[in-house]
Design a protein around this nucleic acid. Structure first.
Length: 298
DNA sequence: CACTTGACCTGTCCGC
DNA sequence: TGCGGACAGGTCAAGT
């Protein structure tokens, strides 16, 4: 589901909503089977008892598309939402005031997609929902988080101030014979780009997604670098993209799709030249392009 | 090693 | 209205 802007939007929400709260229990009282639960959240009851129960939330961080919820026990909840994962906070009673979208969720969660429930001591709750069950939650000592495979392999954060265009171009040398779209989606090259922002940034840089990485000029890499940062910053500003399932920590949708130039806009005119946007398949993924603007030139 | 493909799941949409 | 197949915001483990 979420790419960097969506995970960052959730992180900012959770930062405001749950830091300082104390976890009372971790559970599920839903239709999820026990094997589903084990897959989503494999830590043992003893781990939960020792390192989660009574723990205070000290911080909420993000690395690539992974959320890190730090606990006062020096353990962290490491969470990947994959395609359809959600982390939704619901206050106790009328916490947000009548009519607030979050309060409309009271009584609606947990539902059949709820995999893990965190109950706080003030009777508020955090729900991990995941329709397709690809996502996961792991409890890991905070100091060991950088040692897990994903963290060791993942590439640099594209929005960091010290991340430069030349650094960006450099990262692609390891994937010089594949398509630029496959390379952009490769989390070991650059962190956080997924299918939406790959298509959006390639349109912005006027690069055909099938273009072989090694055929791209440095000036094209500079353009692509700028476009990746532009679309991700814009999306964070708009609260992310809700294509289907995505909601933020308060259960609200993001509005980037209202600003998308090509993603899921097949049949509509290219906002730059008016040519009809088409949908093709690149790197095994549905891919949206303007066939006029993105001709695969260097 | 670099690269591609299929698998993991459930739900929805589209054509017959 | 039903049914089969394709497809969906992501990563892995296999294969070549």
């Amino acid at each position: 589901m979420p790419e960097l802007p969506e995970v960052e939007t959730i992180r900012r929400g959770l930062q405001e909503l749950i830091v300082g709260k104390i976890i009372k229990t971790v559970s599920s009282d839903t239709a999820a089977t026990s094997s589903d639960m084990v897959k989503s959240f494999p830590n043992t009851p003893a781990d939960v008892e020792q390192f989660i129960k009574k723990a205070k939330i000290t911080d909420v961080r993000r690395r690539a598309k992974v959320l890190l919820i730090d606990l006062s026990t020096n353990y962290s909840l490491v969470i990947h939402l994959k395609m359809t994962g959600q982390l939704v906070f619901v206050g106790s009673g009328n916490r947000f005031g009548a009519g607030h979208p979050n309060d409309s969720l009271i009584g609606l969660l947990p539902d059949k997609s709820t995999r893990v429930v965190f109950d706080f001591t003030d009777d508020s709750h955090l729900y991990f929902n995941d329709q397709r069950k690809f996502g996961w939650v792991r409890l890991i000592p905070t100091a060991e988080v950088p040692d897990i495979d994903f963290m060791k392999k993942v590439g640099p954060e594209p929005l960091e101030a010290d991340f430069t265009a030349s650094g960006f171009a450099e990262r692609f040398k390891r994937r010089s014979r594949t398509s630029i779209k496959a390379a952009l989606l490769d989390q070991t090259v650059i962190a956080g780009v997924g299918n939406i922002y790959a298509d959006e940034s390639l349109w912005g840089a006027k690069i055909h997604p099938s273009t072989v990485v090694g055929d791209l000029s440095y000036s094209k890499f500079k353009l692509l670098y700028s476009e990746v940062r532009f679309v991700m910053n814009l999306s964070i500003d708009k609260g992310g993209s809700t294509n289907r399932n995505y909601v933020n920590a308060e259960g609200k949708k993001g509005s980037y799709m209202d600003f998308a130039r090509v993603f899921r806009r097949e049949g509509l005119p290219c906002p730059r030249c008016g040519t009809e946007i088409i949908k093709i398949r690149v790197a095994g993924r549905g891919t949206h392009i303007c066939p006029n603007c993105q001709r695969g030139s260097r």
